[in-house]
Simulated scan of single mutants.
Amino acid sequence: MTIPTRIQRRRTKGWRLPENAVIVSRPSRWGNPCKVNTMQEMGYEDPHAAAAENFRIWLAGSRSDAPTDEADQRRERILSELHLLRGKDLACTCPLDRTCHADELLRQANTPTAELTAWIAVVRARVDRQRLARGEKPLHPTP
């Protein structure tokens, strides 16, 4: 079995998505809600790396930059379907020599199942604690 990798999605005539690959660029369900342009406007020296790091932190349950129901639901959708990316190559428009959120998706999706399940439980608990601290209903209330 080959190790899943990130590939650069092309929009040129004749380019086709390779077999066993999933598009994870911005407009997809897996897209990074943090825009590279925003990071550039904020003055980051490496806006690609900043956007990828922001995605990693957000996916791990931080609500500091996006404390909204919409952002929480988007994160939850990604977490609940992350297993679908296991073993797949991921295609994004980011250049391969730049850091990309797909790197984090690859890392998490290919984590052993038990570890991934435990990590997702921790993320969900983290999000719910933050929601409760803001007087919001948790997404995953404990029985």
Rank of each mutant, 00 (worst) to 15 (best):
M1T: 11
M1R: 11
R6G: 01
I7H: 08
I7K: 08
Q8L: 10
G14S: 06
G14A: 13
W15H: 02
L17E: 00
P18G: 02
N20L: 11
A21W: 04
I23T: 07
I23M: 00
V24I: 03
V24W: 06
S25E: 02
S25P: 00
R26L: 07
R26A: 10
S28D: 07
W30V: 02
G31L: 06
G31D: 05
G31E: 03
G31N: 01
P33C: 14
P33Q: 15
N37A: 13
N37R: 12
N37G: 12
T38V: 15
T38P: 05
M39I: 10
Q40N: 07
Q40H: 13
Q40Y: 14
E41T: 09
M42D: 12
M42K: 15
E45Y: 06
E45K: 06
D46H: 11
P47N: 00
H48I: 06
A49R: 14
A51H: 07
A51G: 07
E53Y: 10
R56F: 00
R56L: 05
I57L: 03
W58D: 06
L59P: 08
A60G: 14
A60K: 14
G61M: 05
S62V: 09
S64F: 06
D65H: 12
A66M: 15
P67Q: 05
P67Y: 10
P67D: 12
T68G: 00
D72T: 14
Q73I: 06
R74I: 07
E76K: 05
E76R: 14
R77D: 13
R77I: 11
I78T: 15
I78W: 10
L79V: 01
L79Q: 05
L82R: 02
L84T: 13
L84G: 03
L85M: 03
K88G: 11
L90F: 05
L90Q: 03
C92F: 03
D97I: 01
R98V: 07
A102F: 09
D103F: 09
L106P: 04
Q108L: 12
Q108E: 03
N110I: 00
T111L: 15
P112E: 09
T113Y: 01
A114K: 01
E115W: 08
T117E: 15
A118T: 13
W119I: 01
A121Q: 08
V122C: 03
V123S: 07
R124A: 08
R124I: 07
R124H: 10
A125I: 13
D128T: 10
Q130K: 14
L132T: 13
L132D: 06
L132N: 12
E136A: 12
K137H: 10
T142F: 04
